[in-house]
C-alpha cells in the first residue's frame, strides 16, 4: 500500500472511531428521546469522549504513523484535537445546567450519586490535563514530570468517564451502545499495554552502548552508540529516536533526539545533543560503556524523495544542525552530486558545531555554506544577523523553486524561515520543517 492510501485509511479509521457513538445512536434502536438539549448534550459528551480517547493512540511512537505523517503535524493535531475534545465534553454539563438548573444539585459532592461523582472527577481531570499541557512551560513543569502527570490523568479521566456513562445507564442500557464503549475502552487499554509493556519489551532486546562522546561546540556533544548484540538500527537520514540512558526501557524518562550520523553506517548511531540545562546536561559527563535504549527511528523525511532530486537547501538554527549533519553525512557517503545549500545560524563562533566536518563536506559534496552569526568573530567568514529573506535571495540560484527546503531549529526561527520562503514563492510541498523543542 502506498503512503497516500495508508494516510487515507488512517484518517478514515480515526473519523469512524470518533463518530462511532453517534453513528450507533442514530442507527440502532434507542430509548425514546427526552428533550432536544438533553440529547444534544449527551451526543456531544459521547463524541467528545471518543475523540479524547483517540488521544491514547501514541501518535509519535507508532512507526507506521510516523512513516506517513509529518511528526510536527501529528503533534499539532494531537494538541488541537485534544482541546476540541475537552471543549465538546465540557459542553455536555454546560448545556445540561443551562437547560435544567436543577442539575446543579448533582454537583454536590456529598449527596451526588456515583454516576455524577465520576462525571465531575472526569471533568476535573480534563481541566487539569488541559491546564498542565497548555501552560507546562509557564508553570515550570519539566517535560518528564509533566509526562507522568499527563499519562496518569489520561488514565483517570478514561476510567471516570467510563464509569459515568455506564452508571447513567440510559443509552448504554442498549447492547449496541454498550458494545461501542467496550470497543473504545479496549482500544484505549490496548494502546496503553502496547506502549508501556510490549514496546519496551521489544526495545530491551536491542540495547546500545555508549562508544564515545565527542565535543562539537561549547555546549554541544555527539554521543556515538554501538549496537550491543544486534546489527543496529535501520534508519534514514534526519530521523528521530527516543533514547534513555542507564535506565530501564519501561521508564517514562526518555527524550527524542535527531540522529546526526550517516544512514549508511548502521554499525554506529550518532546523536548530537546540546546542553539545555536539563537531562541534556549529563551527556558531556558520560564516560563510555553506559547502556542506552533506543526507540525508533521515526520520521517520514527522505532525501530520496523525488521532490528533493534537484537539490537541497538545508537551513539550521543552533542545534538544528543535528539532523542536517545526518543528511550531509549520508549524501557524502553515497557520493551524491546534487547541489546542496547550507545556511547555518548561530549566536557566535564558539557555538558553531561541526566546523571541520562541514569544511570536509565542501570537498566531497557540491555544497555551498553560509554562516550567519548574531555576534560575528574573526575566524569564520559569516553574515551578521539572522538568515533573512535577502540573504536567501542572494545565495540561492534562480531556479530555486525546484529545490527541497529542510529547516530545523527553534520555533521562532522556523516561523521566520517559513515567512521568508513564502516571500520567495517557494511552493509549500517543497518545504519541510522540524521543530527543535517538545510539543
Amino acid at each position: 500500500m502506498n503512503k497516500k492510501k495508508i494516510k487515507l485509511l488512517v484518517l478514515f479509521i480515526y473519523i469512524l472511531l470518533t463518530l462511532l457513538p453517534l453513528i450507533v445512536l442514530m442507527t440502532f434502536p434507542m430509548p425514546e428521546g427526552r428533550d432536544f438539549w438533553r440529547d444534544f448534550s449527551i451526543a456531544l459528551g459521547y463524541v467528545g469522549l471518543a475523540m479524547a480517547g483517540m488521544q491514547f493512540i501514541p501518535t509519535a511512537r507508532l512507526q507506521f504513523l510516523s512513516d506517513v505523517f509529518d511528526m510536527d503535524r501529528i503533534y499539532k493535531l494531537h494538541h488541537y484535537l485534544s482541546m476540541l475534545s475537552v471543549g465538546l465534553v465540557f459542553l455536555h454539563p454546560a448545556i445540561l445546567l443551562l437547560n435544567n438548573p436543577y442539575t446543579l444539585l448533582l454537583l454536590n459532592p456529598i449527596t451526588a450519586p456515583w454516576r455524577a461523582q465520576a462525571g465531575i472527577l472526569g471533568l476535573a481531570g480534563l481541566l487539569l490535563i488541559g491546564f498542565t499541557s497548555v501552560l507546562r512551560k509557564e508553570i515550570k513543569l519539566d517535560y518528564n514530570t509533566w509526562h507522568i502527570i499527563h499519562d496518569l490523568l489520561a488514565l483517570a479521566i478514561a476510567i471516570f468517564a467510563w464509569i459515568h456513562i455506564y452508571k447513567v445507564n440510559f443509552y448504554t442500557a442498549q447492547p449496541a451502545m454498550l458494545a461501542v464503549w467496550v470497543v473504545e475502552a479496549i482500544i484505549w487499554g490496548g494502546m496503553i499495554v502496547y506502549i508501556r509493556l510490549l514496546k519496551p519489551l521489544h526495545i530491551r532486546k536491542r540495547p546500545f552502548k555508549v562508544k564515545k562522546i565527542i565535543r562539537e561546540a561549547a555546549d554541544t556533544w555527539t554521543m556515538v552508540l554501538k549496537p550491543d548484540g544486534h546489527p543496529g538500527l535501520d534508519f534514514n537520514a534526519a530521523q528521530v529516536a527516543w533514547i534513555n540512558i542507564n535506565t530501564s526501557p519501561f521508564t517514562l524518562h526518555r527524550n527524542p533526539f535527531s540522529i546526526s550520523g550517516s544512514a549508511h553506517r548502521k554499525e554506529e548511531l550518532r546523536f548530537t545533543i546540546k546542553n539545555l540545562g536539563d537531562f541534556t546536561a549529563a551527556i558531556g559527563e558520560l564516560k563510555g560503556g553506559e547502556r542506552v535504549y533506543v526507540d525508533g527511528p521515526y520520521g517520514n523525511f527522505s532525501i530520496d524523495d523525488p521532490s528533493a532530486k534537484k537539490g537541497l537547501v538545508l537551513i539550521a538554527g543552533g542545534i538544528g544542525i543535528a539532523p542536517i549533519m545526518s543528511i550531509l553525512s549520508t549524501l557524502s557517503d553515497q557520493k551524491d552530486k546534487r547541489p546542496v545549500y547550507l545556511f547555518y545560524g548561530n549566536y557566535d563562533e564558539k557555538s558553531i558545531a561541526f566546523k571541520e566536518k562541514i569544511k570536509d563536506f565542501q570537498d566531497s559534496l557540491h555544497l555551498q555554506v553560509t554562516y550567519t552569526l548574531e555576534k560575528p568573530g574573526k575566524k569564520i567568514s559569516a553574515e551578521k544577523g539572522f538568515i533573512s529573506k535577502q540573504l536567501l535571495d542572494k545565495k540561492l540560484p534562480k531556479k530555486r523553486k525546484a529545490l527541497f527546503y529542510f529547516i530545523c531549529g527553534p520555533l521562532p526561527m522556523i516561523e521566520a524561515m517559513e515567512d521568508n520562503l513564502i516571500a520567495l514563492d517557494i511552493p509549500d510541498k517543497q518545504v519541510r520543517t522540524e521543530k527543535y523543542e517538545m510539543a
Partner: peptide, 30 residues
C-alpha cells in the same frame, strides 16, 4: 504551511461532531 492542514482537520471534526449531535437530538424528538 502554517497549520492550514491542522486547522482544516479541526474544523471538519468540529462541524461533524456538533452537526451529527444536533441531528441525533432532532431525530430523537420525532
Amino acid at each position: 504551511m502554517k497549520n492550514k492542514f491542522e486547522k482544516r482537520a479541526l474544523l471538519i471534526m468540529l462541524v461533524a461532531a456538533v452537526g451529527l449531535s444536533a441531528l441525533f437530538a432532532l431525530l430523537q424528538m420525532q
